[in-house]
Nucleic acid binder design. Sequence first.
DNA 1: TACATTTATACCCAAACGAGTATAAACCAA
DNA 2: TTGGTTTATACTCGTTTGGGTATAAATGTA
Lengths: 71, 71
Amino acid sequence: MTLSKFIKEKRKSTGLTQPELAEKAGVGLRFIRDLEQGKESLRLDKVNQVLKLFGFKVGAIPLIKDENEKS
Amino acid sequence: MTLSKFIKEKRKSTGLTQPELAEKAGVGLRFIRDLEQGKESLRLDKVNQVLKLFGFKVGAIPLIKDENEKS
DNA sequence: TACATTTATACCCAAACGAGTATAAACCAA
DNA sequence: TTGGTTTATACTCGTTTGGGTATAAATGTA
């Protein structure tokens, strides 16, 4: 499970569109798109700003061990 | 446990200095400092670049539930 | 204390992000 | 297929990151 997929699924299951999520999270629409598109060079605080809506946050350890997880 | 503390502890326990970690991770010294200082607006890919040295990565779900964890 | 090492703060600058907007593409139902 | 909604791509631009460097502060040891 990637971060992008996680966000996308959460958004869908909440019945939100990208513009709606962007507004609720207080970020730009472009950011949501980049995020769901799997762009890696995103700012951590913005990512957390979005995750917070779903009760999660990156930047809290422990993290997942990196064993070449795919997709 | 914050991301910054996690990195710092990992670095210490590995016996590395900030400049050494920066070089090993392929990022700038400034980045390592910002990271360990708890700066939030860091780029996700750079953070992962550092975490990878320790076998971890951010941006893999599931994450930690955000319940006002402190420090 | 004094000294050496490590870490923190400050400055400058090129590069990249993030926002806004517009347009094209994809999706889905009728 | 058609039409309407949602999502993806492209462009421009102000702001900020990240690197490099220099200097100050902190830490640890004798």
